[in-house]
Design a binder for these strands. Structure first.
Lengths: 228, 228
DNA sequence: TTGACTTGTTCAATCGTTTGATTGAATTTG
DNA sequence: CAAATTCAATCAAACGATTGAACAAGTCAA
């Protein structure tokens, strides 16, 4: 009933699975777009099929049903994050200097901003993800365990090294969350930001302006460890 | 057919209208909660009526239909923001010192954090609002014009005074957005944040920790104007 | 104080539409 | 040809909206 896809990508943890293709891929892309834009329940299977250029029955065939497509979209989100940030990060070398840690933080920040704000795979990821976070938290586990938690830990290690703080301290963890929150807001609140800025979407110049602003705040926050 | 509520609150711009009561208020509160949690289309009128302790037909009676309830929820969001931040802000006095501007920024930041993260009216506002922003942008206009734009302008004026920059410059505007983005993220991503922090929701101690972190970043960002 | 009438509100029942899922035939692919 | 995939047609369930009856509170004449 739902044994079409060959599942053997979970055994190799370091490999980033390829992007889904064909009708299956088209449906996932349509789901990611429509679920994120309108919501899961608000998107009908007929809309999904039309957006993917196929028939309604394909959803049941490939994913077992509408809910299976949702699950596949969550996994696709995880895959896209892996594709941008690389496979799971290695532990930090002990002799990494603070300046190098700060530079890598800046690099990852820039990569994230360009991924989320620019045209491409990242554009519709946060909206979809947020709907999952706000609604039923069951499916969030997949993304949290496979992407968020290890990435956040990596960023905390870098942040701690760069600022001379304990990477496991609440202050560092909150600092990383607040830092990421800025980036996500520029995507989720794009409608508000671009209107207030007088922009017509995020072009290269606009992305560069956001980058400059967030990197400046990052460096300022890192230089000042907050007093106890 | 839909002339039940007495509309005469728009003429007085400085007054914060009272919170809606009775069945009408219960429906708005149910809408704010369920629309934000599950989504507009995912919430049935029967669920709304049950959550509000009334009958389905009350929705059509008070709001003309499900979409009218959505519109009423948007206006309630605007009202709640006004209730916390006060009526529309006055222009900054010319002789306001930078330190005073920075102090007021910190005060408004704290008020916002407690409003959005603590228990109460603000808790479910961002989720509902974001669903509106991501979906049909038509209803966003109400909130944008009545709340976001004037508030953002006020914050930009304070930010410019505190940091010695032009309050109308893109850098300042982006700085204010990034600053607000941090706060909103702690509400929208609460499921992720609390899990990673090992917290059980946002209690007073947790809110204080978030406050400390965001205020530290704010002060750091204000002290350092970013170089051109 | 009555009783009939009005107004504002809520109720159960019902309507036509749209939903996700299913089915068996048709089509493509190897 | 046979397996994999897509198609048009169809189903029961759930949807938003509507309807006319029912209820509560107030008004006014007698």
């Amino acid at each position: 009933m739902s044994d079409a896809p060959p599942p053997d990508a979970d055994t190799d943890p370091d490999a980033v699975p390829p992007a889904p293709t064909g009708t299956r891929g088209a449906l996932i892309r349509a789901g990611l777009h429509l679920f994120g834009k309108t919501g899961f329940a608000a998107t009908s299977t007929r809309e999904l099929a039309e957006a993917a250029g196929t028939n309604v029955a394909s959803i049941a065939y490939h994913f077992g049903g509408k809910d299976g497509l949702r699950r596949a979209c969550v996994e696709e989100v995880a895959r896209r994050f892996q594709a941008v940030l690389g496979p799971d990060p290695a532990p930090l070398p002990d002799d990494l200097p603070a300046a190098a840690a700060q530079a890598r933080l800046a690099f990852l920040t820039t990569a994230m901003i360009r991924f989320l704000l620019g045209r491409g795979d990242g554009e519709e990821v946060p909206a979809f993800l947020l709907r999952e976070v706000l609604g039923e938290p069951a499916l969030l586990d997949i993304v949290y365990d496979r992407v968020i938690a290890p990435r956040h830990a990596d960023l905390c290690a870098l942040w701690g090294r760069a600022s001379g703080q304990d990477p496991d301290s609440p202050a560092v963890r909150l600092g990383v969350f607040a830092h990421l929150g800025q980036i996500l807001y520029f995507r989720l609140g794009a409608a508000i930001v671009t209107r207030r800025m007088g922009w017509d979407g995020y072009g290269p110049a606009e992305i560069a302006a956001v980058e400059a602003r967030i990197l400046a705040t990052l460096n300022a926050a890192l230089s000042r460890g907050d007093p106890p």
